[in-house]
């Protein structure tokens, strides 16, 4: 089979596709996935988002109608608003909590391994499990509210999942609980990568520890922060299971998110093109986040 090893140059000159033929065959699943699924399916969906497909996909183009309808649907607007609230809050809180925990663990403490395991274990659990757990903790008849009332505060009210204004923050609490451990691990790896000499130098200069973190360490960890940011951001757009398990989008439509809108339109409401248009908007959102990052990464590599 492997004739190319005898005289690679002449063989590949005569029949270029035969060169490395085994590697090409082996890479076939990857090629099919990359072109057929990632590129092909995405283009298919984008194209069909300009049609008026309902129960079945059909090539009946209606221009931007689906997008106009999408952006005048209250449920979609609520979804986008929720995604923005959830996204911004979880970005800030995950970074803050993740970095704080990492710095605390990096202070040469005892039982570091135990603490790290505790902070990270929720990440091993699925969003379904996470959502259900926090549904109970935040349930007024079972969780926090009941406990505080039992302690004597009869009028204490804490039922975020039943209040349309607050419900999304209830989901946020669960999301942070599940994901902040991951950010901590990434930050900790970043902190461990910083040269001991830097610490020695700042100590010699008499700079307080907290100031060293803010002025010296954080700027040095720019790359780690960007990675964490991209990681959180790309997870946020996909948020779906958590909402399904914790609130099913309720109360009313208070905790709807775009991924759920897409699923419901495609698989429950038989309004395919609406689902396609909504998912295309999700893709656009990801592109808006990723393109600047990829640009920066690429530029950085070129320089280095």
């Amino acid at each position: 089979m492997d004739r190319s090893k005898n005289s690679p140059e002449s063989e590949s000159a005569r029949r270029p596709w035969l060169k490395n033929i085994n590697a090409k065959i082996a890479a076939l699943p990857m090629i099919i996935t990359a072109l057929g699924i990632f590129v092909g399916c995405s283009i298919w969906t984008i194209v069909h988002s300009f049609t008026n497909s309902r129960l079945l996909p059909k090539m009946d183009f209606v221009g931007l109608d689906q997008y106009e309808r999408l952006w005048s649907t209250r449920r979609w607007l609520v979804s986008i608003e929720n995604l923005a609230i959830y996204g911004i809050c979880s970005l800030i809180l995950s970074l803050l909590i993740g970095f704080t925990l990492a710095t605390l663990l990096d202070r040469k403490i005892r039982f570091e391994g135990v603490f790290r395991s505790i902070f990270l274990y929720p990440f091993a659990l699925s969003f379904i499990v996470t959502g259900l757990v926090w549904q109970w903790i935040l349930n007024p008849e079972f969780g926090v509210q009941k406990i505080v009332r039992a302690m004597g505060f009869e009028n204490f009210v804490f039922d975020p999942l039943y209040d349309p204004q607050l419900a999304i923050y209830g989901i946020l609490i669960a999301g942070i609980w599940q994901g902040s451990g991951l950010i901590m691990v990434i930050m900790l790896a970043g902190l461990r990568g910083i040269d001991e000499d830097i610490w020695k130098a700042t100590r010699v200069d008499g700079i307080p520890t907290w100031k060293t973190y803010i002025v010296v360490i954080i700027p040095m960890m720019r790359g780690v922060f960007v990675t964490a940011l991209v990681l959180i951001a790309s997870g946020i757009v996909k948020v779906y299971d958590l909402v399904v398990a914790q609130t099913s989008g309720g109360p009313g439509i208070a905790t709807e998110v775009p991924a759920k809108y897409v699923y419901d339109k495609m698989f429950a409401a038989q309004n395919l093109a609406q689902g396609f248009a909504a998912s295309t908007m999700m893709l656009v959102t990801v592109a808006i986040i990723l393109v600047p990052w990829a640009y920066l990464e690429f530029k950085g590599k070129k320089r280095g």
């Binding site: 399916c41 775009p258 998912s279």
Partner: peptide, 17 residues
């Protein structure tokens, strides 16, 4: 393409799959 594809929301590819 494969690595960039990892960032595409699954929802975009679900129906064609």
């Amino acid at each position: 393409i494969l690595v960039i594809g990892a960032f595409i929301p699954y929802q975009v590819m679900l129906y064609p799959i």
